[in-house]
Simulated assay, not measured.
Amino acid sequence: MAIYFHEEDLPEGVLAPGPVAVDTETMGLITPRDRLCLVQISDGQGDEHLVRFAVGSAYEAPNLKAVLADPARVKLYHFARFDLAAIEHYLGVMAAPVFCTKIASKLTRTYTDRHGLKDLVRELLGEEISKQQQSSDWGAPVLNDAQREYAASDVRYLHRMVEIFQQRLAREGRTEVAQACFDFLPTRVRLDLSGWADKDIFTHD
């Protein structure tokens, strides 16, 4: 298992076919204001690739965009709504189709309100991850080893967790509704980016 660090784009041909786990790091939680600094991606074979974008980046990244926009590759996320918005806004592609482990967790782990990645990795896989670097400066000129390890861990476990959630969704009879939620996420993201992030347009009000 290795963590590979790249500047501005993903090298061509480094990922095996099939689903890829994806995550992002930004300067904050307001997508149009807080720039995209890092995209993490893994094919589930044991390596993680970190693509860093510097201040003033043009976000060209043709190889990364080709993978993210590939309709034949399912993209695995934890809280896809945020990552899809950052990728759409800065890279200009909708990185779908989607499987979101946070949505799957909320649909199947109804016995708890703890749906963070750390909680899922602990319960489902029996492993511990540190979230200490979550709020660190992702726009720094140099990312330290702790930041790189944190970023890689955000995609390291998603393939294994998706297998478990697929079984649980089937067991609880919620596979179809989960898929409908995943399919709706690109529309939800476009509503977020267009100014309806905090509005429920489906209510009578």
Rank of each mutant, 00 (worst) to 15 (best):
M1T: 06
Y4V: 09
F5Y: 15
F5S: 06
H6M: 07
H6I: 11
L10R: 10
L10H: 09
L10E: 08
P11Q: 11
G13F: 06
L15S: 04
L15H: 10
A16E: 14
P17V: 08
P17R: 07
G18R: 12
V22N: 11
V22C: 09
D23P: 10
E25F: 12
M27S: 14
L29D: 09
T31A: 11
R33T: 15
D34P: 01
R35M: 08
G44F: 10
G44V: 12
G46Y: 02
D47Y: 03
H49F: 12
L50T: 05
L50A: 02
G56D: 03
G56P: 01
S57W: 01
A58H: 02
A58F: 01
Y59W: 03
Y59S: 03
E60G: 03
E60C: 04
E60Y: 03
A61C: 01
P62V: 00
L64H: 03
A66Q: 07
A69Y: 03
A69F: 03
P71Y: 00
A72T: 14
V74Q: 14
H78S: 08
F79I: 08
A85N: 06
A85D: 04
A86G: 01
Y90D: 06
G92Q: 13
M94V: 15
A95W: 01
A96T: 14
A96D: 09
A96V: 07
V98Y: 11
K102T: 06
K102A: 08
A104L: 11
L107E: 01
T108E: 00
D113E: 12
H115V: 07
G116L: 08
D119G: 06
L120R: 12
L120M: 14
R122K: 14
R122N: 06
R122I: 07
E123M: 10
E123R: 15
E123Y: 09
E127S: 11
I129C: 05
Q132L: 10
Q134D: 05
S135D: 05
G139H: 12
A140Y: 11
P141Q: 09
V142C: 05
N144S: 07
D145Y: 04
R148E: 03
E149W: 02
E149P: 03
Y150V: 05
R156G: 04
L158C: 02
L158W: 07
H159K: 12
V162Q: 12
I164P: 00
I164E: 05
Q166I: 00
L169A: 00
R174L: 10
T175N: 00
Q179C: 02
C181N: 06
C181V: 05
L193Q: 02
G195H: 10
A197F: 07
K199A: 11
K199Y: 14
K199N: 07
K199T: 15
D200S: 13
